[in-house]
């Protein structure tokens, strides 16, 4: 079986600044991969490039998703192919309510009952008629992102720092929601694939990740068990990883 996602020698710049410097990455269907790395190493850039944000300019290399070359597809086309993203800091869209957006992206015709149940589970009932992310706290933003993805139902979910800005009490709620989104909480549900960026590793307490990588200076290093990698980082920092490659 071919890989779900593959990048070949991916070089990406943002406003003429080279960020990714030849990323080779691949993952199989149903896998959960975790990206670690210091600030500015290129983790978010890799994620945003995979999703197709125009600010992230592919200078060289290819991206394949489900066997198709998506390097030059736009955001919408990639979303339609089954890619989805949870933003670290989503923008505020004042005039568009979360309720309205959910209505638009619910193309699978999920019932009102189902929607209400997940809205309730994510504790977002009071936010549905507010502008998107308008005055939302860190935790509310993450839950809103996950709600949108639960309705969108992408095959591969890109999750950028699910713990950032979330208080300790809400981390469990976010973690459980990610598990539910990925179909890990039910035996029969379809398993979604994911790439998750984490600094703290808290999310590993909730999500059973398959592989971990360190992103360092625009490259992918040190593939391995995510818990082992996290433990190494905690002991020796990211630099040692870069040195021992």
């Amino acid at each position: 079986m071919e890989e779900m996602l593959k990048t070949e020698d991916l070089w990406v710049s943002i406003e003429d600044r080279q960020v990714l410097k030849g990323v080779y990455f691949s993952m199989n269907y149903g896998e959960i991969n975790v990206l670690f790395g210091p600030n500015g190493a290129g983790k978010t850039t890799l994620m945003m490039t995979l999703m197709g944000f125009p600010k992230y300019k592919v200078e060289q290399g290819k991206i394949y998703f489900k066997g198709e070359d998506i390097t030059h597809l736009d955001l919408y086309e990639r979303a339609k192919l089954g890619l989805g993203i949870s933003f670290q800091r989503p923008p505020t869209v004042k005039g568009v309510s979360l309720e309205k957006l959910i209505g638009i992206i619910n193309t699978n015709g999920r019932s009102r009952e189902y929607l209400d149940s997940i809205i309730d589970k994510l504790n977002l009932s009071g936010h549905m008629h507010r502008g998107l992310n308008d005055g939302f706290s860190g935790g509310e933003m993450k839950r809103s992102e996950l709600l949108q993805l639960m309705v969108q139902r992408p095959d591969l979910v890109l999750i950028d720092e699910p713990e950032s800005g979330v208080d300790i009490e809400n981390i469990a709620l976010v973690g459980e929601a990610i598990n539910s989104l990925l179909g890990k909480d039910k035996v029969k549900d379809k398993k979604r694939s994911a790439i998750i960026i984490t600094h703290t590793g808290y999310i590993l307490d909730f999500v059973n990740a398959d592989k971990g990588y360190i992103v360092f200076d625009g490259k992918l290093l040190c593939r391995g068990n995510p818990r082992d990698i996290l433990s190494e980082i905690k002991k020796h920092g990211y630099r040692r990883c870069a040195e021992c490659r």
Binding site: M51, A79, P91, K94, G95
Partner: peptide, 27 residues
Amino acid sequence: AEEQVEYLMSRGISKDDAVSVITSGFL
């Protein structure tokens, strides 16, 4: 705001529809 349009596009909404939804919301 382009970032708003891109945000909606990443949810599987076409560019024209995203602009339309944001504009209606603005008005």
